[in-house]
Design a protein around this nucleic acid. Structure first.
Lengths: 238, 238
DNA sequence: CTGATAGCCTTATGCTGTAAGGAATTGTCC
DNA sequence: GGACAATTCCTTACAGCATAAGGCTATCAG
């Protein structure tokens, strides 16, 4: 964890031995490139090493193990997120803006969703993101307990939405079928394998009727509004 | 996917060869036991095979690959969930009951959270769970699009809450520190490594002040209420 | 009995993280 | 300059993973 907060130790201390050809920073950078383009599952020490013209083992000079490397990657990409949001028009649009930025962030780095959330990595940028939401929510006047609940809810919602999008993005490419095609053939497939499933699951059939626009984006917007209304209600209650 | 919907093909068809010593069902059962007790990461074909007195390779006679096995495990445990909820007192308590049942379910089988969500596995029990929530939400009078949004929001919330609980449960045991102790030493640790972090992140410090009761359970209840109020607002708007 | 089939095995391939130990480089001290 | 220590990076090795390939054997239909 010390590595997370160092970020530029004093460059003094001249020490014997060959000059370091790498650094924690370039390793983390290379690892992020791998994870962004090939996904978390394809991230291996060997692959990161090769990208830097080294073997996988060379990385262990700089990073104690893969887990810590992932923690460093996580905190590093979090730096992309804004640290403040414009709350001049009230907390509602600010929260909406936060949610959209955060969603886009997860879509940019889907592997982040696979990094442990509840044992927080405790890096500086993780605190900064937390700081940014709480800061917005101070405008609601809610107390710390309620605010904690709302923050958790907001994160769960955005992360869940991101997971839905990225996974539905990956699934078709894995099977070689396009996204739309997949959903179109879905019902046909099901009718084949489970004849009369629309009778067996009438509610599912109903909820999937009346196809509303762009799908995922639409669902996100609706969920966000419900959520904001819920916060408003909590505020009204005091 | 055909395996998901079979669940008892006709036992006719007498075929040559040795009698099957195993079955898809006992394999799935054994795999669930492994995943429940040792976690998804520890689930391997070899381990499931050994639990049944076979090698790992023997399973490939019944199941095409590990991915399909996981799909089967997923749909199997989903059968534990209720298929209907009492909505006689209105949709609000019914949704609350659904959320609590579902949270408890995820806590019982934490590995389920690691099964892909957005390319739905499309098993019968997955549809049944979807059916149960939508069924409750019909009582709100919302249309299909809004209902879809609310369903997604509900699942994201419950899954996120479950993830938070299970991960904070696992983390300390991995490091050998107790849960409470971990949180207690948290601030001290941070003060050491990042002196004056309470000044740097005042909002975080504020939101973590006033420790409110049992923590996770409290956060869940608060979030759920916010969510229910949000649905109510959506209903009121029409 | 013969041939086909299905269950289960052993073996092998190519991945993974990482422990261990050695070679090479570069500094400080005599 | 030579000795010694520290450091980077390498090769090798091990245990584990999913799973492909091929072989042995039990069991059926004919």
């Amino acid at each position: 964890m010390a590595l997370l907060w160092r970020s530029g130790e004093e460059p003094g201390e001249v020490r014997p031995g060959p000059k370091p050809g790498l650094s924690v920073d370039v390793i983390v950078e290379a690892a992020i490139e791998v994870a962004d383009s090939e996904g978390m599952a394809a991230l291996s020490m060997r692959k990161v090493g090769e990208r830097l013209g080294r073997t996988g083992m060379a990385l262990y000079t700089y990073v104690p193990n893969k887990g810590e490397l992932v923690d460093l990657m996580y905190d590093r990409v979090l730096a992309e997120l804004p640290t403040t949001y414009d709350a001049s028009a009230g907390w509602r649009p600010a929260v909406a803006s936060w949610a959209e930025h955060t969603l886009a962030f997860y879509l940019r780095h889907p592997w982040v969703l696979q990094v442990s959330q509840a044992r927080p990595v405790l890096g500086p940028n993780e605190f900064a993101t937390l700081e940014s939401v709480v800061s917005i929510l101070r405008g609601t006047g809610l107390g710390p307990r309620r605010t904690r609940g709302v923050v958790a809810l907001l994160f769960d919602f955005v992360r869940g939405a991101a997971r839905t999008v990225t996974e539905s993005r990956l699934a078709p490419s894995a099977t070689g079928v396009s996204d739309e095609e997949w959903w179109r053939t879905r019902s046909h497939l099901l009718e084949e394998v489970a004849p009369g499933f629309t009778d067996q699951y009438p509610m599912v059939a109903w909820v999937e009727s009346e196809d509303g626009g762009p799908g995922a984006a639409d669902t996100f917007a609706i969920g966000l509004n419900v959520l904001l209304d819920g916060i408003e209600a909590a505020v009204a209650k005091g």
